[in-house]
Amino acid sequence: MNKNLISLDKLPVGCLGKVKKLIANGITRRRMLDLGLIDDTTVESLRKSPAGDPIAYEIRGAVIALRSEEASKILVESIQQ
């Protein structure tokens, strides 16, 4: 496994990541897929909510907030800008 992978909730705000693996199953996984989170999708971490969780991400032109429980199940490769 590529050791450069981090979970999405660890992606610093303002950084881009490329989706590499979903470690969720069942309905959660299907929801993620419906958001367009397939392999190699670019995701940007936009901002944290006042309490730090959930975090808003830009996914395929839409702004989606994910709780850390879900974001931690999405593994991304951080893209250097």
């Binding site: 929801r31 958001l35 959930p54 839409a62 702004v63 989606i64 907030a65 709780r67 879900e70």
Partner: peptide, 10 residues
Amino acid sequence: PSSFTLELPP
């Protein structure tokens, strides 16, 4: 708590 995804529309 179940999974939570919320869209923040423009």
